[in-house]
Nucleic acid binder design. Structure first.
Lengths: 362, 362
DNA sequence: TATGATGGATAAAAGGTTTTATCAACCGCC
DNA sequence: GGCGGTTGATAAAACCTTTTATCCATCATA
């Protein structure tokens, strides 16, 4: 079907070896005369020779391709925007270094080893790694290097992790809301996500920051955003004492905003809302969403560079890279002094004294 | 490095052929006894054999991989959302059929043939195909089938196209705004995009629909959204007579919305805004954006299916599949009767009579 | 007892590249 | 005239799989 080295060799009246050497520089000890070289180049150009990467990969066992593994890709356009940002960051760095990107999705945990070891890629970046010990062990023993992106690392990591300081990010939220005068903050969790390492870390950070600030925090301050948002609706109907809401991710935060708007609750005057993951999406909501930013593009690029390094210089010990988060303050948060007293009683004064005593902490 | 057929064969005390037959069903005329088969399976499992897809691809010249080509991928997270939707649709259909997806970007036009013919993929989907004749000719002669997605087809297509009725979509906008009473509508173009087939088709549809409705339309009714939006600002400052704006794409429409908001112009009471490409993004703007919807997920899946068909049954004549557009009416458009007369003079009456005479058309 | 199926299995080629080892020719030099 | 060194080039193995052709029994049939 395609033009091969053999075809070029025949056309130029030389050996395959010579053509390979000239066109791809392969073979250290092979020497070619200037005239032969030009003849070969001419023939290759005339025949429109295109090297067969598959054959080359078979020989060199390098594909110059990196796999990006998503647990559930079907949600890319519906899911949170940072998935797109991860993809974007990884892709940019790969393309810049002339690597190719292939996307894997719905890799069954049983065949995880096979999917990564079939020779189609040189390395893999795993987004939102699951926690199952056995899966992790399999990945660590995989024939190709694997980096975990955007997943909280366990205590004794078997792989290299690139993640953000979820706990610290949650703390930023508490500090921000505290500084604005908020004294009761609701944490909105998502159903089905509550046992992921990231969600756990965020909630932990939130809890601890509240404790240290002397803010009351009980299980009643956690509510789940399920599909029909019934828990949230219940909470809302009961005339909640909270003046702030921290949504565990961007999408839920957007949903809270919309729900508030529908209920005639004005953000930020009636309620301050903060989300996790500051993305372009947060700029288009109304009001724009205050959110924790993890430098996801940078992180994604870093993950790719780690793979390059491993491929060039051999494997390294598993390491954990944790990126600090920052807070992008936008229009969805405001001082409690702005709260209209119409809908709820001004709870912020009741906790005032306690807070003054503890001010040093956060 | 990896376990090969040979290893399994030795472990089971049989030939490579036998193992290949049992594990992959290859070789029509090869027959294996039940006991031998179980022995082979046992050995394969014990050694954790993983077939080498690269070697297999070399032999069969099939990779079960489809390439998705983006002209400029770097903009995925910044660019319009329908890029993500295209990717999502293609990916879903590929994965459903156990194909793999690899992403190509920044394929230089000179090496376009090489990038597609190096054996790494069985087919390609090209998003936003350029128009250059020579490139198209190269693609058509490519070793693998190529389908153009989301690109207006030329008169004599060399490839199969899956696109939407851009012209009809633009007409929907005119009809919608006309029905709401708008009589002067501004078309907002994007710099650098104005010569793409899609943009041309949209503008053409807009022009024709205006003509047929008897709406005045001159070159003054087209304005470019450049980087600092200076043209748009000029237009705006001059106290434009338009009551409606049609932005050629989603992102520009969003920018117009924001600009209007900053200028204290209320959408939709002061101005109606319509965009092209109705995506999740349009639901998060304030107000939600009325926009033309092309069934992009369906189109993307269709493109993938065309490739499957070509790969299974051989090439077909180039065809053009044009999907009709619909209009998602959201909050950014309203009847002109709602226009507050404070900021601009009521231009809609001046054209009234002409319109009544031509009412039958749209 | 040939003949012909049939079941069970293997050898070997092919696919396109990389790379090592080998070879021929030539030159210069003792 | 034999030796070492250099230049220019090639043959052939290896990478791992698929697939065709071949082979050897065995067994039934004429």
């Amino acid at each position: 079907m395609g033009v091969t080295l053999k075809d070029v060799a025949e056309a130029a009246g030389v050996s395959i070896t010579a053509v390979s050497k000239v066109l791809h520089g392969s073979g250290k000890s092979v020497r070619i005369a200037k005239e032969t070289e030009t003849a070969i180049r001419e023939a290759a150009h005339r025949l429109q020779y295109v090297p067969n990467s598959v054959a080359r990969s078979l020989r060199t066992s390098r594909t110059r391709t990196i796999g990006l593994v998503f647990e559930n890709f079907g949600s890319l356009s519906e899911g949170p925007m940072y998935y797109v940002l991860m993809l974007d960051g990884v892709a940019q760095e790969l393309f810049r270094n002339h690597y190719r990107l292939t996307i894997l999705a719905e890799v069954s945990h049983k065949h995880v080893g096979g999917a990564l070891s079939d020779g189609r890629m040189d390395g893999a970046i795993w987004c939102k790694l699951p926690m199952e010990e056995e899966v992790l062990a399999q990945l660590a023993q995989s024939r190709i290097p694997v980096v975990a992106l955007n997943t909280e690392a366990p205590a004794n990591p078997l792989l290299t992790y690139v993640s953000c300081d979820n706990e610290g990010g949650a703390r930023l939220v508490v500090e921000h809301l505290y500084a604005l005068g908020h004294r009761r903050v609701l944490y909105v969790m998502e159903i089905g996500e509550d046992d992921t390492p990231d969600a756990t870390a965020r909630l932990r950070g939130f809890r601890r920051a509240c404790q240290e600030a002397g803010l009351p925090f009980s299980e009643d301050d956690i509510v789940f955003w399920d599909r029909d948002a019934s828990q949230f609706a219940d909470w809302w109907r009961s005339g909640p004492p909270h003046t702030g809401v921290f949504a565990w991710n961007e999408r839920v935060a957007g949903a809270v905003l919309r729900r508030a708007h529908e209920s005639g609750v004005h953000v930020p005057t009636d309620l301050s809302v903060v989300g996790f993951d500051s993305t372009p999406f947060c700029e288009t909501t109304s009001p724009p969403l205050t959110a924790v930013r993890q430098p996801i593009l940078e992180m994604a690029k870093h993950a790719a560079r780690i793979l390059f390094d491993t491929l060039d210089n051999g494997p390294d010990e598993p390491r954990v890279f944790t990126y600090p988060c920052t807070l992008d303050v936008r229009g969805s948060t405001a001082p409690t002094s702005m709260v209209r007293r119409t809908r709820r009683k001004p709870v912020e004064t009741s906790n005032g004294p306690i807070l003054d005593a503890e001010r040093g902490h956060p």
